[in-house]
Design a protein around this nucleic acid. Sequence first.
DNA 1: GCTTGCTCCTCTAGTCACTAGAGGATGTAG
DNA 2: CTACATCCTCTAGTGACTAGAGGAGCAAGC
Lengths: 141, 141
Amino acid sequence: MSAGVTIGEAARRSGVKVPTIRYYEQIDLLPAPARSEANRRHYEAADLRRLAFIRHARELGFEIEAIRTLLTLQDNPNQPCGTADAIAQARLAEVVQRIRSLTALKIELELMVEGCRQGKVCECRVIEVLSDHDQCESPHH
Amino acid sequence: MSAGVTIGEAARRSGVKVPTIRYYEQIDLLPAPARSEANRRHYEAADLRRLAFIRHARELGFEIEAIRTLLTLQDNPNQPCGTADAIAQARLAEVVQRIRSLTALKIELELMVEGCRQGKVCECRVIEVLSDHDQCESPHH
DNA sequence: GCTTGCTCCTCTAGTCACTAGAGGATGTAG
DNA sequence: CTACATCCTCTAGTGACTAGAGGAGCAAGC
């Protein structure tokens, strides 16, 4: 019989910080674990798996509410997985869009930085471009 | 002598929403404008330029504090522009990094979505990959 | 036993950049 | 004169944590 690990150990193993673990418990994303006599949380393997799942999903940029849904799906594996797929696809669309706009933005910033001759502010391209959107390559950001 | 425009008109011209304009005033990013007899704000051309500058910088992802610095520089154009350049370069580096990690993420999501055969949750790649980071292409997100 | 220092507990408040809503005054068009 | 839009101030909420206060427990070394 394993006694489970402390919150600090769970944090080390999952890569989720201690206060964040407590926060996840508070918002009912993670079930409240058993407590020791001295009122300390201790986590079992199932909790650690759930925590790893959450962390991985957060790294992939899923919002907490999306993760809540995904966890519910995981807990009820007998249903069709259309919902999980839809969530992942929506996230993929967001990411693609975000990459597009960041790439446009990168071009603007590169032009700015290149144009700056390290002179005085009054002739600085950075300030100038920021003042006047018409100087941008792509007008759509 | 122009009487200036209302906050609604300023919002329309700058693309910054009315409550956001008031918020910028509150945090001293935008100077408090003159008021009409009925206590309404009215904005002059200089205010509108400043607002456009702020909006453009926000679109490019600069933080409020960075914009505050950039505005101070703009107000004192006789200084060397190294600071403005440094801010833009830092932002550029962030953007490059963000694009890199989003691209890695896009690959994971595509694999997930492709792998999902629209069956039941118990055989869904989306859930499975989220549960087990080792199944990812790049372990570094 | 005693001290030192780490980890744990709860609770509240702060972060960023807004956004929403209440409750009321003023302006404008028909 | 009556809608209705716009304006005002103020407070509180958002998401996903993060920081800090104030206190208790535990393990190791002396």
